[in-house]
């Protein structure tokens, strides 16, 4: 990857300042214009290096304290269709297909974040109804041992 991409990611990954011209310092450091900084970010986004440029939310502070990992046993031939339906739920923040094991048949994983555990349970029921997948499990996180962002 281009050096300038890495440099710009390093400068902005901890967050831009909340000022009228937040890319001013990054531009000065890289010796380019603010317009060029914005263009580079756009390019990284269209190349898929950045998934999204925007705010990370402290969801717990906002009362979104419940999260459940819902795991679903979905017939292989329905994974594509069902995965798309699940991803369409706004409460679903992540949705992945993962391998099965003899003692772990659940192959679709969705993370559900909401205000209460009851909300999560209800969302899982809604997803089940919308997809017809009835073999599923909800795993609530009882304890957070570690949580760090991925940095470069």
């Amino acid at each position: 990857m281009k050096d300038i991409y890495i440099q710009l990611l390093r400068i902005t990954q901890d967050g831009i300042p909340f000022t009228s011209r937040p890319f001013k310092d990054a531009a000065a450091e890289l010796n380019i214009s603010e317009e060029e900084v914005v263009d580079l970010i756009r390019k990284m986004q269209s190349e898929g290096i950045i998934r999204r440029f925007g705010a990370s939310i402290g969801h717990r502070v906002l009362g979104i304290t419940a999260n459940a990992m819902c795991t679903w046993n979905v017939p292989d031939e329905r994974v594509e269709e069902v995965g798309k339906i699940m991803a369409g739920f706004s409460e679903v923040t992540h949705c992945y297909e993962r391998p099965r094991y003899p003692d772990w048949p659940y192959n679709l994983f969705t993370m559900v974040h909401s205000y209460t555990e009851e909300d999560c349970i209800r969302t899982a029921e809604d997803i089940s109804k919308a997809t017809g997948i009835e073999d599923y499990k909800l795993l609530f996180s009882e304890k957070e041992f570690k949580k760090t962002g991925i940095r470069i």
Partner: peptide, 21 residues
């Protein structure tokens, strides 16, 4: 700034796709 001080906004920045790295 108020939302950030309260922890409701953690940061505004890039969400990096580590696969691409």
């Amino acid at each position: 700034q108020r939302l950030n001080a309260a922890g409701a906004i953690r940061r505004i920045g890039p969400i990096i796709n580590t696969k691409k790295l």
